[in-house]
Nucleic acid binder design. Structure first.
Lengths: 248, 248
DNA sequence: TTATGCGGTTTTGTCTACAAAGTTATTCCT
DNA sequence: AGGAATAACTTTGTAGACAAAACCGCATAA
């Protein structure tokens, strides 16, 4: 078993349990471990955007045949986490600034609605778990563990989507969050990530007190804050592709 | 070339042009013709929900190797149009009533926003095309061509999403519309589809006059109308799975 | 008569090999 | 010396074959 780069996966009976949060479209297929491992590695910034993902390299890393690598890459391509170029191979996606803006616009529409739903149906147990999540975030931020902080921040939003118990919205939130992770890797400019925890704290209170409107508004402003931490000033699409070509 | 069931596809340079409306995530891969043909067949109710899709049958129908069938089925599974059961095969998806409700809730959130966006940015050319679309719908309804009417009705919503020029929202609308097609196949109770064209007409006017709020409200009420045409009264999830087992 | 166990058949899952396309480096010509 | 064409190499795309799992029918026993 070759296990380089520190990427690991187990072949337990239910391989989808690998992730911290349950996957909305969990299909118990055999290439799931590869998919999950790669997805985790991309989302947690272990593999930077633009990295080439050669099939036989992955094949030897995970010690499975290429037949299991291909569907995993295809699934990641459908998630827009990798870009498949015919006869060229797979690369970790690099969302354009335009895409980044649109993703955050979509989040600004969907996540407030999800937060309101969560505030309506949250059980005491769910709220307790949410507070626990907040604790973890806080300790990760204090320990300056950037990787864990990023993952936990996304996990907080996923947890709210789980509470809302709406499979469609949840899958969209998962989709947008994973792509947001790529956006953060590319366009994050502010290094002081302290501003977030206060917003999360207020959100938990609104949800715990069953105030849907407050939760929605807090989520909306929180997303505006997040967006303001990105460097997305206008560049024309032509410039973007030109610089792409020059850089490459 | 074996072409049964009337399903056809061409292998033109850009196989994605087969569909009436451009696909948001158009990847110029070789299995695209199979994917498009199957997707079209499912959406247009040529293949009813629950139908098994054996790999080698599809392989002989489209006269391609199974290696091209598998990724196509996988992509359709990601779209939630087919369900992949390990070691069992692929089946056309059968959304539960719960899923159906959630899908229409998602549409009720996203499509009004998209309609408002379209009303803001619609060009005269786009409006003209929208009116043309309306004409086609009208003639299909008058000719009692149910299949065409269903497809054109969805096409109208897709056209609005195209005008809005927001790739994320557009892909979500496409996703929700294709799944709505399955829902209609399963749960449609009203056979008089005449009510729709008036709502579409009013929507076009709101978009043409650049009134985003009106467009959003019209879209919202239109979706409520559509939902009321479905038979989705409560059945407990336990009952649902039980009846599933009995029926199968 | 009904239920259970066994075996054949069908269908999916995976691997290996070959073909095609792309990329890179080298060489030759200007 | 610089640029273009060509050749070698690398990587992906596709087909075929084999193995494993599930399904169906039949026989046998309670």
């Amino acid at each position: 078993m070759i296990m380089s780069r520190g990427i690991e996966f187990n072949t337990s009976p239910n391989p989808m349990k690998t992730l911290a949060h349950k996957q909305s479209d969990a299909q118990p297929v055999s290439w799931a471990p590869v998919y999950q491992a790669l997805r985790e590695a991309i989302i947690s910034h272990q593999i930077p955007p633009g990295t080439k993902l050669p099939e036989d390299e992955l094949s030897s890393i995970y010690s499975v045949g290429r037949a299991l690598i291909r569907p995993a890459l295809q699934a990641l391509a459908h998630d827009k986490l990798v870009r498949l170029e015919p006869n060229r191979g797979a690369f970790v996606a690099q969302p354009s600034k335009q895409e980044a803006r649109e993703i955050f616009e979509a989040r600004a529409l969907i996540e407030p609605k999800v937060a309101a739903l969560a505030a309506q149906v949250a059980t005491p147990a769910a709220i307790k778990e949410l507070r626990l999540h907040l604790e973890h975030e806080h300790s990760a931020t204090q320990a300056h563990d950037d990787g864990a902080a990023i993952k936990l921040s996304a996990g907080f939003h996923m947890a709210i989507a789980d509470i809302a118990a709406h499979s469609i919205f949840a899958s969209y939130v998962y989709d947008l969050l994973s792509r947001s992770s790529l956006i953060v890797a590319l366009y994050w400019k502010r290094r002081d990530a302290t501003c977030e925890s206060h917003a999360h704290h207020a959100l938990v209170e609104a949800i715990a007190n069953h105030k849907p409107d407050d939760a929605a508004n807090l989520m909306r402003s929180h997303l505006v804050d997040l967006l303001s931490g990105l460097d997305l000033e206008l560049v024309s699409k032509q410039d973007r592709t030109l610089s792409d070509m020059l850089r490459k």
